[in-house]
Simulated scan of single mutants.
Amino acid sequence: MNFSVLLLLLVTLVWGTTFPLLKSASSSLSGVEISAIRFVIAAVCMLPFVFKARRETWRDGALLGALALTSYVAQAYGLEHISSNRSAFLTSLNVLMVPFIGLLFGGRLSILMVGAATVACSGIGLMSWEGGGNLLGDSATLLCALAYALYTIMLSQRAGRHDARQLAATQIILMALFASLWVLGSGASGGGAALASLPERLMPHIGTLVYLGLVATAGMLMLQAYAQRNVSADKAAVIYALEPVFAALFGWLLLSESLTVQAGIGGAMVVVAVIISELKPAEPKPAS
């Protein structure tokens, strides 16, 4: 297992801590408000890295930032309507989307990676699937999965062209700008009451938002931009499927949440999927 894969495992572990935090923050903040605040915090942290960024880095950062912002906002909006477990499962469907969407960008369909992705999604299904669907919540979360599948593909294609810190910084700065304009626009259209009450509503969640901004956004986007130079999009997507596994593990260790046998089997299936993704297909024997 190479160093880049280990970095992506660390990224996924940190992401696993964000589901309960997002669920808690969404009790008083909208999805776009959570996203805007976390990205502004991250942007302040990453500001020193943008001054030497090339025009090409800003261009790719804008594309990646738009996709990531769509994914984050759609997920946070979905969590206003569905449980974090259901959100984790629906979000994980990006693992299956990546290899098939990759065909449109000149990729090749690997049976090994499709198999790993299928095992991963099945495992997350055992862990997380439950009833109580909501059309708006489910649709928003599926949009999140689609946007993140596209993000994963684009990042693997473009990360090697740029300095990882500069690429992450340009993404974050633009995401903060887009999300802030979105909040201001939606607040103005609603008469300004939401904007007026924003300081009061965010204060109970300030620690959560700082963690989401500095660690889960700034730090992890930078590690992603570095690691996906050397990891294919479909393999990265399978690794990211560990996110709900880590979320369930932290819930069990820190919050004393129940962990059923079914959830344990599902988590084990995702771990097996990651191991499968690390296997190298046999080289064809040369013709004699």
Rank of each mutant, 00 (worst) to 15 (best):
Ser186Asn: 15
Ala233Glu: 10
Ala43Arg: 14
Ala287Tyr: 10
Val261Met: 13
Gln75Met: 12
Ser26His: 00
Ala196Asp: 03
Ile276Thr: 13
Arg54Gly: 07
Ile124His: 13
Ser277Tyr: 02
Asn2Lys: 09
Gln75Val: 00
Leu21Ile: 13
Pro199Met: 08
Val40Tyr: 03
Cys144Thr: 12
Leu8Tyr: 03
Tyr240Asn: 13
Ser30Asp: 01
Leu143Val: 12
Ala237Phe: 02
Ile34Asp: 00
Gln262Asn: 06
Ala263Cys: 12
Leu214Asp: 01
Ile206Thr: 14
Ile101Gly: 08
Ile37Trp: 03
Thr18Pro: 01
Leu279Lys: 10
Gly115Gln: 09
Ser4Asp: 09
Gly16Asp: 03
Ile239Gly: 03
Tyr226Thr: 12
Ala68Glu: 06
Tyr151Pro: 02
Val40Ile: 14
Ser122Trp: 02
Val14Met: 12
Ala145Phe: 04
Ile206Phe: 04
Gln75Trp: 05
Ala116Gln: 13
Ser186Arg: 13
Ala287Ile: 15
Leu90Ser: 01
Phe89Asp: 08
Leu253Tyr: 12
Thr141Leu: 00
Gly115Asp: 05
Trp182Leu: 15
Leu7Trp: 03
Phe246Ala: 14
Ser87Lys: 04
Leu9Tyr: 14
Arg54Phe: 05
Ala42Glu: 05
Asn2Val: 02
Ala247Glu: 06
Ala188Tyr: 15
Leu79Gln: 15
Leu7Cys: 03
Gly207Tyr: 07
Ala196Cys: 11
Ser110Val: 14
Tyr211Trp: 07
Val261Ile: 14
His162Lys: 13
Ala140Pro: 05
Ser83Ala: 01
Pro204Asp: 05
Glu56Cys: 15
Arg38Glu: 06
Ala168Tyr: 04
Val272Leu: 14
Pro199Leu: 08
Ala149Asp: 04
Arg229Tyr: 06
Ala176Pro: 02
Gly132Thr: 13
Ala263Leu: 03
Thr170Gly: 13
Ala43Asn: 14
Glu257Arg: 08
Gly191Ala: 09
Thr17Phe: 05
Ala43Pro: 10
Arg165Ile: 00
Gly187Cys: 00
Ala237Glu: 02
Met220Asp: 07
Gln262Ala: 07
Ser277Asn: 08
Glu283Val: 07
Gly107Gln: 08
Met175Arg: 08
